[in-house]
């Protein structure tokens, strides 16, 4: 089975104080550690397991500058046979539609049996690239897959819905799935593993290499344009309890008793 996985290298904002750049539209990335998008880690693991189970090949794709290659090296270390990074000077403002277009172009004439991506990205959270890419590739898809099983030329997937519900669907291959977290337990990727993977091919392609008209990418990129980033509205403005752990515990107990009525 020939597999393709699409990954993204994103900032880890978990503990970061995000600072908006002077253009008002970007986050100051130099403050942030980067990592492979969490959903993509699950997609990669699922792809690697499928490859291990069925044989065949695994190719990883990523849109991003050279610094983002870390995530591709990870893919190679986990078992991808080759990796393709697509980058062009005009890319930093790409919207999801343009990303999907560029990825589709990177796939080009090649045909894979199954395409996997993360259900969404941790940074912009659009959840758009997967189904868009499926449309461009002309294959059926299923989003938010949390279980995947190969059955004679088809795959049976469970999609995670709301409130404890799942939907089981069958996809004819070739197909694309977007993977929900928790579908598997992603393996650890060691530094030595990443170093060893350096011998595997990693191609870098520009728009010209892909035969894509920059204007088309520009047009797709302009479909959605980020105008501004801003801090979120204050919301409920929680009253912060301060002091030593013992003090805040005392205050919290008072709150639970007076406002919560549980003590």
């Amino acid at each position: 089975m020939n597999l393709a996985v699409f990954v993204k290298h994103v900032p880890d904002a978990a503990e970061a104080d995000l600072r908006i750049g002077p253009d008002g539209r970007s986050v100051r990335a130099e403050d942030l550690p980067f990592q492979m998008n969490e959903w993509d880690r699950f997609a990669l693991e699922e792809a690697a397991r499928l490859k291990e189970a069925t044989g065949g090949s695994l190719t990883a794709f990523l849109i991003g500058p050279g610094e983002h290659e870390d995530s591709l090296r990870r893919c190679l270390a986990v078992g991808a046979d080759r990796a393709v990074r697509v980058w062009d000077e005009s890319f930093p403002t790409l919207g999801p539609a343009a990303v999907a277009r560029a990825l589709a172009a990177a796939v080009g004439e090649e045909r894979f049996d199954l395409y996997l991506c993360g259900a969404q990205a941790a940074d912009d959270g659009y959840a758009v690239v997967g189904p868009t890419l499926a449309v461009l590739l002309g294959v059926p898809w299923a989003a938010l897959v949390c279980r995947l099983e190969l059955q004679d030329g088809r795959i049976v997937c469970d999609r995670e819905l709301e409130a404890g519900w799942f939907e089981r669907v069958e996809l004819a291959l070739p197909a694309l799935v977007t993977v929900q977290t928790g579908i598997n337990e992603p393996r650890y990727v060691s530094i030595l593993g990443i170093r060893k993977a350096r011998s595997k091919p990693l191609e870098v392609r520009g728009l010209a290499d892909l035969g894509v008209d920059p204007d088309e990418i520009g047009r797709l990129g302009a479909l959605t344009r980020l105008e501004a980033l801003e801090p979120p509205p204050p919301g409920r403005e929680a009253e912060m309890l301060e002091g030593s752990p013992a003090e805040v515990a005392r205050k919290a107990v008072a709150v639970l008793r007076e406002k919560g009525g549980v003590l």
Binding site: R187, S190, L192
Partner: peptide
């Protein structure tokens, strides 16, 4: 075990 990626989650978190 690390090269095979088979490690406890808590260790994985610490290493990453």
């Amino acid at each position: 075990k690390i090269e095979e990626g088979r490690i406890p989650q808590t260790v994985m978190d610490a290493l990453e």
